[in-house]
């Protein structure tokens, strides 16, 4: 990232002592210290607005927009914690602005809101999240086996539960932002998928109907080995997904099982295929497929399309 989020400009310094207690009308006020700038640099600017109570940070950012800075760039959509658009760092903590209540913050001090640090800044609080969309394209899609004779797929709720935990993900990318492998190491991005996509891999790996094996991909190209399970991702997940315990650790174990199984090793030696290209919708099928599945070695043409 070209600019560092703690670079404070002169304008901010001059207004940092703004009265945060109450405005002229007697309504309590609050000061937001917002990062303004673009990929060439920027600074924190202070905006003092009414503190109306019962609000979330995004409400106050919107009021700044409507009253003082109509060109303040910020992404948001649902304002209900369901779409994962309004990710930012509030007082240095990666949060969804729509789910951060003002009453949980100390409003006697300015509240700092800065863009996600792991991403290049586009403008103000809006960052370039294209890395995530690029990684998504590298993961081969779900690939089910045939339906039961009566035309249905059967699955026990307990198996569905395991997968559903990961499918709760709203793609806010807070976990990608806080992961130390890429937070200050842009150079790791090409060979590291990040926690969100390890959860996606785990979801597919644990899906009772899927027939592909993505373990080799996870380890060779998507860098699951870089993760040293500090659980930062789990801590910031607004959906409470146990990314480290339920996705990454089991995936690491399965990768290890596949890599160090001597029969699988021999199979890889003999049958290795070229790695899937980003546009490909099918994975290389390692012979060391899931123990609980019958693996077809012939990728099916995705049906129904």
């Amino acid at each position: 990232m070209a600019t560092s989020a703690d670079q404070t400009g002169p304008e901010a310094a001059s207004t940092a002592t703004a009265d945060v207690a109450s405005g002229a009308s007697g309504t309590p006020t609050v000061t937001l210290r917002l990062w303004r700038g673009d990929d060439t640099g920027g600074s924190f600017n202070d905006y003092t607005v009414d503190n109306l109570g019962g609000e979330v940070v995004l409400d106050v950012v919107h009021r700044v927009q409507a009253e003082q800075a109509p060109d303040l760039a910020v992404r948001w959509n649902c304002k209900a914690g369901k779409c994962g658009s309004c990710s930012a760092e509030v007082n240095g903590r990666p949060r969804l602005m729509c789910m951060t209540r003002m009453s949980t913050l100390d409003t006697t001090q300015p509240i700092t809101v800065s863009p996600l640090r792991a991403n290049p800044v586009i403008r103000d609080l809006v960052t370039d999240v294209s890395y995530n969309f690029a990684v998504a394209r590298r993961i081969p899609a779900f690939h089910p086996g045939p339906r039961d004779a009566d035309g249905t797929y059967r699955m026990a709720q307990v198996d569905a539960d395991r997968v559903q935990e990961f499918r709760k993900c709203i793609e806010c990318f807070l976990c990608q932002n806080v992961c130390h492998v890429v937070r200050d190491h842009e150079e790791n991005k090409p060979h590291f998928a990040g926690p969100r996509f390890f959860a996606r891999l785990a979801e597919l790996e644990m899906h009772p109907l899927d027939t592909l094996d993505r373990r080799d991909l996870a380890s060779r190209e998507l860098g699951i080995g870089y993760c040293n399970i500090t659980k930062c991702c789990t801590e910031v997940c607004p959906e409470g997904i146990h990314i480290t315990d339920n996705a990454i650790i089991p995936m690491k174990e399965r990768v290890v099982d596949a890599r160090y199984d001597p029969i699988a090793w021999l199979g890889r030696k003999i049958l290795r295929r070229p790695a899937p290209t980003p546009a490909s919708s099918t994975a290389s099928l390692s012979p060391a497929g899931k123990a609980h599945e019958t693996i077809s070695t012939q990728p099916r043409t995705p049906a129904g399309g």
Binding site: A141, F142, P144, Y153, M155, A156, Q157, A160, V163, Q164, R167, L204, H207, D210, P302, A303, G304
Partner: peptide
């Protein structure tokens, strides 16, 4: 068929 996991 495309990967949705409904309640069962």
């Amino acid at each position: 068929e495309w990967g949705a996991v409904f309640d069962r």
